[in-house]
Amino acid sequence: MRKLYETTVVINGGLEESFIQETIEKIKNTIVAQGCELKSVLDQGRKELAYPINDTKTGYYVHIEFMSDGTAIKEIERQYRLNESVIRYLTVILDKRMLEMRERVLKYGTPSQTSGDEGTQTDTVAEQAR
């Protein structure tokens, strides 16, 4: 059965831009080569890590959504482990509950992101208390 997967890759942020783009291309190619269908690629760029990993302070975050029957995941994750510029990776199934939550984020999340986070968040907490 084919399912929708999402894989997150954290690439060492200390590397050069061209090398990072090359790595992303390589990852995409491995996913396609495994017979998976790419759905979307979300490039979040460099972000500061919450804690240092191997003396690295920044990471380059890429989220890739793809359709797969599950057998390809093993090989994709093996390629991540072989790739030294990938410092962290995570592959999750985007099931019904996850997609439902994504919808909610789209529906209610956007206004709170643009305006001040603090104010809107306390409002929602107050709504819950009622």
Binding site: T8, Q44, M101, R104, K107, Y108, Q113
Partner: peptide, 12 residues
């Protein structure tokens, strides 16, 4: 309450 939401990709 449908207003609660979170996403593992976003710190905020």
């Amino acid at each position: 309450n449908q207003v609660v939401f979170f996403d593992y990709r976003d710190e905020r």
